[in-house]
């Protein structure tokens, strides 16, 4: 039809001539189509990251809280030299890692059952069960857990009934770990499910034919094939935990601040954007390294 356009170009005028020109030069067409999304990506996304990076090397005037464009490494020095900030970084990374491991351990049997054992109906039901919490407000789910954990909450009420006495969970790092593990579990289950579902039945049969028992099949066949899925899921669980600040604020106690909390305080409250930028670069760098590792483990094919 494009050739038709060319032949009748004379009476159609400018519109036709443009379309003809585009047909003759496919690269122009591609460029026109790609420019808007590319521009968006470059200017909005990469440029803001770039500005973040640059800002981190500035400082604010302590009195007016105006940004002073004076190049210095003070923010990073403070981050590294101050024991509190080091502790906050380690705490954030540590809990993110713990949550990732927890979710992987929980998701693997669940996803295996979903992908390979459950009937079609049960599978649908499980899918719904995994996805429905994602439709509920994040805040509502965090508060729900807080209410379970409080001193007079459901958990202690139940423990009291069976004579195990009250436990102190609300406003602790343990509570944060549980809440995070709950929040991000669906993000681990889905990629692991996708990976497990792809394993052909014949692999498991072959493993059995060669004399491998269940345990060995899991270790030598299923786990290696599920690994890209686990790594893909871990990208979500790890990065979501790494960047969170609401759960630490609501559920955490003393000594529960995350990197996100420090960033939040500095941007919204203290007006120290350079320091916030410097601290915000930490999770960006960590995730960059993490993604590099994940790619080597084939996580991107499993997503």
């Amino acid at each position: 039809m494009a050739s038709g356009t060319i032949q009748t170009s004379a009476p159609r005028g400018a519109g036709a001539r443009i379309s003809a020109a585009l047909w003759r030069r496919p690269w122009v067409r591609a460029a026109l189509l790609l420019t808007p999304p590319l521009a968006w990506f470059v200017f909005i996304y990469l440029a803001s990251l770039g500005i973040l990076l640059i800002t981190a090397f500035w400082r604010i005037n302590s009195f007016t809280t105006n940004i002073e464009r004076v190049w210095n490494l003070g923010n990073f020095r403070t981050l590294l030299e101050n024991a509190t900030y080091r502790a906050i970084m380690l705490r954030t990374i540590g809990i993110a890692a713990l949550v990732t491991v927890t979710d992987a351990v929980l998701a693997l049997p669940f996803a295996y059952y979903m992908a390979r054992v459950a009937s079609r109906r049960a599978q649908t039901a499980l899918f719904v069960a995994v996805l429905v919490p994602l439709w509920a407000s994040y805040i509502a789910r965090v508060y729900a857990w807080l209410l379970i954990f409080t001193h007079d909450g459901v958990l202690n009420w139940g423990l009291d009934k069976i004579g195990l006495g009250p436990v102190t969970l609300a406003y602790t790092n343990t509570a944060m770990w549980i809440v995070f593990s709950y929040l991000w579990l669906p993000f681990m289950i889905l990629p692991v499910y996708a990976a497990l579902e792809r394993i052909p039945d014949s692999y498991l049969e072959a493993s059995a034919d060669l004399g491998a028992r269940g345990g060995r099949t899991v270790a030598k066949v299923i786990l290696p094939l599920a690994l890209p899925g686990i790594v893909a899921g871990s990208i979500f669980t790890f990065s979501l935990t790494l960047g969170d600040f609401i759960t630490p604020f609501l559920v955490g106690g003393t000594g529960s601040s995350f990197i996100g909390n420090v960033v939040y305080e500095n941007v919204g409250v203290a007006g120290n954007i350079p320091f916030a930028a410097a601290f915000a670069i930490v999770p960006v760098v960590i995730m960059g390294l993490y993604l590099l590792g994940a790619r080597r483990l084939g996580a991107f094919e499993a997503m």
Partner: peptide, 22 residues
């Protein structure tokens, strides 16, 4: 609490003692 890092840091970067600027 953490709010305040701002000024705190400045002091560090400005090497505390003088408070020459600001």
């Amino acid at each position: 609490a953490l709010a305040a890092l701002g000024a705190a840091l400045i002091l560090l970067t400005a090497a505390c003692g003088g408070g020459t600027e600001g």
